[in-house]
Design a protein around this nucleic acid. Structure first.
Lengths: 253, 253
DNA sequence: GAACCTCATTCGCTATCACAGAACAAGTTA
DNA sequence: TAACTTGTTCTGTGATAGCGAATGAGGTTC
C-alpha cells in the first residue's frame, strides 16, 4: 500500500490509541496520552467516543479493547476463502498431535495468523489469531514464500528486511533462497528456533491449482519435548497430510 | 454508556464507514459517501488511511474489512473470562447434537455472540460471532435475564424496549416476567420462533457463585426437523449438561 | 482526618485539519 | 465519439480536534 496522499490524522491517532491499549493489555488516559503525544483531554475524548460504541470498554480507570471489534474481525476472517475449509482440518491435526497448530495467510508481505487450534499439550506462545509476523523467520512464512515466484520473494524481503529475531534466524539472502529450494523439493519447511528460542515448527504450504501458495499450516512444539525422530518424520507426515486435504477441498469444491 | 460530552466526530464517521462496509459486504467510495453524507473525497481519504494500516482491503473498486480487525477482535474475546472454558464445551455439544450451538454474553443490555460452533446439520443463520442481539427475543437472552435481579431486567427493557421481530415475540412486560419465573424454575429457556421464523432454540444460563448469570449457551435448530420429543426432552438435557460443566470449570478453577 | 497525591474529566479558545467542490483520470456502455 | 460511470487529486476555508488550566474523584500517607 502506497502512503496515502491525504491521510486523516484523527483516524491514525485513533488507531494508535486502540493499538496501544491492545499492546499494553489495557491502559489509562494519562498512560496513553504520553505515548501518542497528545493531550490527556484529547485522548479522553477519543476514548469516550469509542466507548460509546463499545469499541473500547471502560473498567475503572483502565480502558480495554471492546467486543465490537469481534464482529468485524470474525467477518474479515470468514471472508478469507481458506478459513472455512482450513479450520476443521487444523482442529483435527491439533487433536491428533496434541500440539499447537497454526493457519497463516499472507497480507502485504507479512504473515497473518488466521486461525489456531490448541492440542492437549500445546505450548503457550505470543502468537494469537490476527497476529502479524515477518515471513522470513517462521516455518509457515518460509513454506509460503517457497511457492511464490522469486521476484515476489525478493520484493517482500526488500520491503520488510531480514531482521534477526533469535541467534538462529537466517539473515543471508543466498542462504535463504537455497533453503526455499530445499523446501520446494521436500514440500515442507522447518523452523529450528529461528523465531523463538526453544521452539521448533514444521510447516507445509497450501497451494492453488497453479502451485502458488495461498496459505500455510504449521505445528509448533517445544524443543525439549519433541525428539528428532518425531520432529523429522511423524510431524512432517501429519502436516503434509493436513495441508493436502485442505488443498483438495479448497481447489475442487 | 452516557453520551460523550465531547465526541470526536471524525472517529464516529470513520466507524460509520467501517460499519457500512461490513453491513454491505464490501462497498465503493461513492456508495459509502451517499450513506454517511460526506463528500467522496473525504470518504476516499478515510479509506486510504485505513487501507494503509490494513484495517480495510482494497479489491478493485470495492473496499472490504481488513484482517487487522481480527487481531483486536480475537484479543477482546480471549479477554472475556468465559470464552476459554466455554469454547471446548460448546464444540462438544455441537458435535453431539449436530446443531448450531451459541455462547452469548451481555454487554450494556444487549447480547453478544461470543462463540459459535456448527454441528454437522447446523442451520445457516444471520448470527455470526460478535453479532449483537436484543435480549428479550432470544432463548439465550431470556436465560441470561432470568438470573439477574428484577430491577436490572426492567432497566434493560426500559433502555432497549421490547421490539417485536416475529409474530411470536413477547411484547408484554408482565408476560415476560412470568416467563422468566418459569425459566428460573426449570433452569432453561425456550425460544419458539420469537426471533426468527422457523427457528427454535433451547438455552441455559451459566451463573457465578452467587447465581447471577454471566453467559448463556443455546442450541438452535429448524422447526421442521426437530420434533417435540427431542426439542422438549433431549435438547434441554444436553444444553443443561453443557452449561453445568462450563459453570463448574469457570467457578472452581 | 487533613494534606497530598494521582488519576480522570470538564471547558473555552484557537490553530489546525477534515472536508466540499470542482477538475481529472480511467473505464464502460451506447 | 460522446455521455456515462467510477475512483482519485488538489486547494481554500470553516468547523473542530486538541491544548492547557481548572475541577473533581479516589487513594495513600502521616
Amino acid at each position: 500500500m502506497a502512503e496515502p496522499k491525504h491521510p486523516v490524522q484523527t483516524v491514525d491517532r485513533m488507531l494508535d490509541i486502540v493499538e496501544i491499549i491492545h499492546e499494553q493489555d489495557g491502559a489509562g488516559v494519562s498512560e496513553i496520552a504520553e505515548q501518542v503525544e497528545l493531550g490527556k483531554s484529547a485522548v479522553h475524548n477519543h476514548l469516550t467516543t469509542l466507548a460509546n460504541r463499545e469499541y473500547v470498554d471502560k473498567d475503572g480507570d483502565q480502558y480495554h479493547i471492546g467486543l465490537s471489534f469481534l464482529s468485524l474481525g470474525a467477518y474479515a476472517r470468514n471472508r478469507t476463502p481458506i478459513y472455512e475449509t482450513g479450520r476443521s482440518q487444523v482442529d483435527t491435526l491439533a487433536d491428533r498431535t496434541g500440539e499447537l497448530v497454526n493457519l497463516l495467510v499472507e497480507k502485504n508481505g507479512m504473515g497473518v495468523y488466521l486461525y489456531q487450534a490448541k492440542g492437549e499439550n500445546a505450548v503457550e506462545l505470543d502468537t494469537h489469531e490476527g497476529k502479524r509476523v515477518p515471513l522470513h523467520c517462521t516455518a509457515v512464512g518460509k513454506a509460503m514464500l517457497a511457492f511464490r515466484p522469486t521476484e515476489e520473494v525478493d520484493e517482500i524481503l526488500d520491503t520488510h528486511g531480514m531482521e534477526p529475531v533469535t541467534a538462529h534466524t537466517i539473515t543471508d539472502r543466498e542462504e535463504f533462497h537455497a533453503q526455499l529450494e530445499e523446501i520446494r523439493e521436500r514440500r515442507y519447511a522447518i523452523d529450528n528456533e529461528e523465531r523463538l528460542n526453544g521452539l521448533r515448527c514444521i510447516a507445509a504450504p497450501i497451494t492453488d491449482d497453479q502451485d502458488r501458495s495461498v496459505a500455510a499450516v504449521s505445528v509448533s512444539c517445544p524443543v525439549h519435548r519433541v525428539g528428532d525422530a518425531r520432529f523429522y518424520e511423524d510431524l512432517p507426515d501429519a502436516v503434509l497430510g493436513t495441508a493436502n486435504v485442505i488443498e483438495l477441498e479448497h481447489n475442487y469444491s
